[in-house]
Design a protein around this nucleic acid. Structure first.
Lengths: 132, 132
DNA sequence: CGCAGTTGGCGAATTCTTTCGCCAGTTATG
DNA sequence: CATAACTGGCGAAAGAATTCGCCAACTGCG
């Protein structure tokens, strides 16, 4: 269920998250590929991308395959587990531990389709069972 | 419903959020009061608190009443609207705009009481009505 | 081989956040 | 009114995150 490998003792910063998103989307990629995607929405040099990746490698946010050239990077942990990690930080730091408040805000401030509301309702039922 | 005053063009940083939390809890307060609360969980000098407040004033995260001494600071926007602002940033930056995914994660990764689940269910019903 | 283009490593500049030292003005007290 | 304690302003140091310049190593092609 949770990821086995040790990994991210760090929460990604803004740019780091941006890069992780690219890796989740593209899968394992070379610096060049990452950089190209990155510069679609951002105006920074190639060196910057290289550097960010090396910082992220240091922090174990990404892994690198050195057996091939050019080297290939991939996210060290899944999108889901990273999201959950960041979310729980937010629940604590911003919502004082109340997941409920956060959920209420999330639901009331964005439009959610009936379809999606239904899925959430089902999860709620699910959770209710485990409780009782 | 939303706050009328212009205000926070900025998302608070960590320490800033910490201070805002204190202001929401205590209500309008002097630097001294804020500082005392702050140092219950953090070890920084009085000057630091003063400076942070002046930075926050600059960013319009807080307002200051200069008509009395010592001056009194208060949060420029409510806890709720700040939370919502930060939450929507997270939904976009981390969850790619999907409030639903965020809600699902929040519910499944933290224990929520049956009581709370019920409240959420009610909100869901509420939202369902508005949709149809 | 030999040059042109690409890749990636490193230190350092830049920018933002957090911290503080120092000092001037204000307040409280005897 | 002195003088000790408190308050708040400012610039700049210290820490992080982000950016880049420069250079060395590697690759592909004629």
């Amino acid at each position: 269920m949770s990821n086995s490998r040790a990994s991210p003792r760090f929460v990604p910063t803004d740019v780091e998250l941006h890069i992780l998103r690219i890796l989740w989307e593209l899968g394992p990629s070379t610096v060049r590929e990452i950089h190209n995607r990155l510069t679609e929405s951002k105006d920074t040099g190639y060196s910057t991308t290289v550097k960010m990746l090396s910082v992220m490698l240091e922090k174990e946010l990404v892994r690198r395959d050195d057996s091939i050239r050019p080297q290939v990077y991939r996210a060290a942990s899944s999108q889901q587990s990273t999201q959950k990690r960041m979310l729980s930080e937010m629940i604590h730091k911003v919502y004082d531990g109340s997941a409920k408040s956060l959920v209420m805000h999330a639901l009331s401030s964005t439009k959610t389709s009936p379809q999606e509301l239904e899925e959430i309702r089902q999860l709620l039922d699910q959770l209710g069972k485990n409780e009782e």
